[in-house]
Nucleic acid binder design. Structure first.
Lengths: 116, 116
DNA sequence: CCACTAAATGCAAGATACTGCATATTGTAG
DNA sequence: CTACAATATGCAGTATCTTGCATTTAGTGG
């Protein structure tokens, strides 16, 4: 049973020990994010992003919600969120302008414009 | 500069994402530990232990102090100590009986016997 | 039905990590 | 010096991870 603690820790550390996965999680802790947004922010091809998302999803660290053609991922592992805060500091506020054309980003854009 | 934060986090997570290294660090956070003790606790050949110690040493997470034939390692990265406490809980007390024949373990044994 | 878009999946080549083992180094004692 | 013990290092085979790319699946609109 004590072995399981080690195993779980190793598993989570391994997920975080990857530059792209770490940046994905850093984006996700700001809130729900679509795949196209991650693609734009990280500058990597979509299949590559989806692969890393799968790794994180199958490990139970993130979860996806499908809305039409778009899938919005969010961070669901609080221990991971906590490790990110410790190692990367508090999450920065979301980008002022949307980097993709998904409906949610468009909504954010409208509310931002209306406010400014 | 923000990139560097990611890089440093990835480096540390990678070090911790290895079962043997994680258990070595878990032992070391109890206090200074000789290589022969680690060898006995982890049940792995000495060259293998030394290799993992080198990885941790070159990353600056641990440091070694030489005393005669023996080398005593200790945890020097406070961020690593902190991650260990979060993921593994508080460090357990050291084993009641010495598992190796190094002078320091012998001293511990004497004080333990004298106390009990 | 078709065309189109967002996302997911499968696969393979290349890079990297893991680990066993032989050997070297360092220090002690005689 | 020799003999011995604790630790370190080098190297090689294997396993695992990474990553690019082609393809597939799912959802929308005509």
């Amino acid at each position: 049973m004590s072995e399981d603690v080690y195993h779980r820790a190793v598993q989570l550390f391994r997920l975080l020990s990857h530059p792209v996965r770490l940046r994905i999680l850093d984006e996700l802790r700001r809130g729900e994010t679509c795949v196209c947004h991650l693609e734009a922010v990280l500058g990597r091809p979509q299949p590559y992003i989806s692969q890393q998302l799968r790794v994180l999803r199958e490990a139970g660290v993130i979860a996806g919600r499908k809305h039409g053609l778009f899938v919005y991922y969010r961070l669901v592992d609080e221990r991971a969120r906590w490790l990110l805060e410790e190692m990367l500091g508090p999450g920065r506020p979301p980008s002022p302008e949307p980097l993709c054309s998904c409906p949610q980003c468009a909504v954010d854009e409208e509310s931002t414009s209306a406010r400014g």
